[in-house]
Amino acid sequence: MNRIKTIVFILIVVIFLSVIGYPYLNNFISKDSNMAKKINVTKGEYVVGKDINQGLYDIEVIGEEVRFMQRQLSDRSKILGIKLNTGEKVMIVGEGKVNMSPASFNKINLKSDKYEINHSGFYNVGLQIPAGNFILSYSGNVEKEKPFVQVLSSKRNIIKTYDFTNKKAYEITLKENEILEVNKFLFYESESLIITLETK
């Protein structure tokens, strides 16, 4: 009888640790298993899995403007946490150089009750920004189009979209392991625009 109780107790502990520890383990595995490798590329067409390793990348433009996967980027523009899958084609047009490095997943620091996102990209909730309730807004010059933000599942399925067409701010809830996709603009990057998450 005691042996059965011990087995049941161990099973309960394992299940409890699995449920509680999953978000942290998942973030660790996602970060640690990234197969991206640092590479510098210039204009041309590249095939992921052949010319570029698949994985999660931070990209930065150096020098002249380029169009990277249909987005116009200028010198020092960055897009963070881009996922490239095997077989996908990456097209680069322009005279600049693109530095591609494994995604760093840098934490965004809280400043005066706000998290300021300065670059378009994909941000992991629980790793880079905390879970919680926020006011999502933007500041800066909006010329041709409005920012576009989405909340994604850990598998990058769309949960909610915020396009700022009719509103300048939204109340949002971010949960552990979700991904916040930030597009300052869909077809070009603006250094003057900042996306803000204000704590509630």
Results as ranks from 00 to 15, higher is better:
125 V>T: 01
184 K>F: 09
76 R>G: 05
56 L>P: 04
199 T>L: 07
146 K>Q: 12
12 I>M: 14
82 I>V: 15
2 N>L: 08
86 T>G: 09
123 Y>D: 02
198 E>G: 06
140 G>Y: 04
53 N>P: 02
57 Y>C: 08
166 N>V: 10
175 K>M: 10
174 L>C: 04
30 S>A: 15
90 V>E: 03
164 F>R: 05
87 G>Q: 00
67 R>N: 11
178 E>I: 03
144 K>T: 12
190 S>Y: 03
16 F>T: 15
8 V>Q: 05
130 P>C: 07
32 D>V: 12
135 I>W: 03
92 I>D: 06
109 N>L: 14
57 Y>W: 06
47 V>A: 01
129 I>L: 07
18 S>M: 12
115 Y>E: 01
124 N>L: 14
198 E>D: 06
78 K>D: 00
85 N>M: 12
72 Q>E: 14
91 M>A: 14
46 Y>C: 04
67 R>H: 08
131 A>M: 07
168 K>I: 12
191 E>C: 06
200 K>M: 05
80 L>E: 06
138 Y>E: 05
66 V>D: 02
173 T>I: 10
123 Y>S: 01
112 S>I: 11
194 I>V: 15
83 K>W: 14
31 K>R: 12
12 I>F: 15
87 G>A: 09
165 T>S: 08
72 Q>L: 13
66 V>Q: 00
160 K>C: 01
34 N>M: 07
172 I>W: 05
184 K>C: 10
6 T>V: 13
159 I>R: 01
121 G>L: 02
155 K>H: 12
128 Q>V: 06
120 S>N: 01
134 F>A: 05
153 S>N: 12
154 S>H: 13
69 M>E: 11
132 G>R: 02
198 E>S: 11
192 S>V: 15
61 V>P: 07
77 S>W: 00
39 I>W: 05
141 N>V: 15
13 V>D: 08
112 S>V: 11
188 Y>T: 03
80 L>G: 00
21 G>W: 02
37 K>Y: 08
122 F>D: 04
162 Y>A: 01
122 F>A: 03
174 L>M: 08
173 T>L: 02
162 Y>Q: 00
116 E>G: 09
129 I>C: 01
